[in-house]
């Protein structure tokens, strides 16, 4: 049996907007900057899944991933005033923070012991385990997967090793046995291609 709000709570006239109504990420971040913790909760609810997928992909250990996720979102809360809309989307901002904290964890672990290297994405086919996103997100993911797929394999490898495994160019050169200069060239070319192919997302997404 379902129970719905009685009519008195469901006025037929349009509701006036009220302070807690949220329309976009930028407003959420602005409210976080002002100390609004409901905004932080909403922000977490919007971004924790993609963030968690990234962290798990990078650090592989669920408990480590929990820690990294927590410190990343707490950092976003503390540093909400550092977000500048003119310099990128909220998506880039939060995912950059999340990745930086995951990199810290990866690099700390590597200092402690030789970390077995696990590499690779499959273009997102298994992503559904964590992702629970709408059609728009699926479309974006497909576009990104396409952009990565169209890179020559050696460029794609460099991007994956750098982005997901957190390796430096020097480390990539060591792992792949390629000269450092070659790795640098591949990184540069791959970056430019990704930027060009994903430019459509930049304009589509606007200042999301």
């Amino acid at each position: 049996m379902q129970m719905y709000f009685p009519p008195v709570m469901n006025p037929s006239r349009p509701e006036p907007s009220y302070p807690t109504q949220v329309s976009d990420d930028q407003e959420l971040v602005a409210r976080m900057r002002a100390g609004d913790q409901l905004a932080l909760a909403r922000f977490y609810d919007r971004w924790s899944r993609p963030a968690y997928a990234l962290v798990l992909q990078m650090v592989r250990d669920p408990d480590d991933a929990d820690d990294v996720l927590e410190s990343a979102f707490y950092q976003a809360w503390r540093q909400a005033d550092r977000y500048e809309p003119g310099r990128g989307t909220v998506a880039t901002w939060i995912l950059t923070i999340v990745r930086s904290r995951a990199l810290d964890r990866l690099r700390a672990r590597r200092r402690l012991r030789e970390e077995p290297l696990v590499v690779g994405t499959d273009g997102g086919a298994e992503f559904g385990v964590v992702a629970r996103d709408g059609a728009e997100d699926a479309e974006r993911r497909e576009l990104v997967a396409d952009a990565l797929r169209t890179l020559p394999p050696e460029q794609r490898e460099v991007v994956e090793l750098a982005y997901f495994s957190g390796l430096s160019q020097t480390e990539i050169a060591e792992r792949t046995g390629q000269p450092l200069g070659t790795v640098k060239t591949r990184t540069r070319l791959a970056g430019q291609k990704l930027r060009d192919r994903l430019a459509v997302l930049r304009t589509d997404e606007g200042v999301r």
Partner: peptide
């Protein structure tokens, strides 16, 4: 650099959490 960061940040969408087959929703 901002454009490159924006583009590389999209790679997060491809994250494939594996390594824990018992991980459930």
């Amino acid at each position: 650099l901002a454009e490159l960061r924006e583009a590389t940040a999209h790679l997060a969408a491809l994250a494939v959490p594996t390594g824990a087959p018992d991980r459930t929703a």
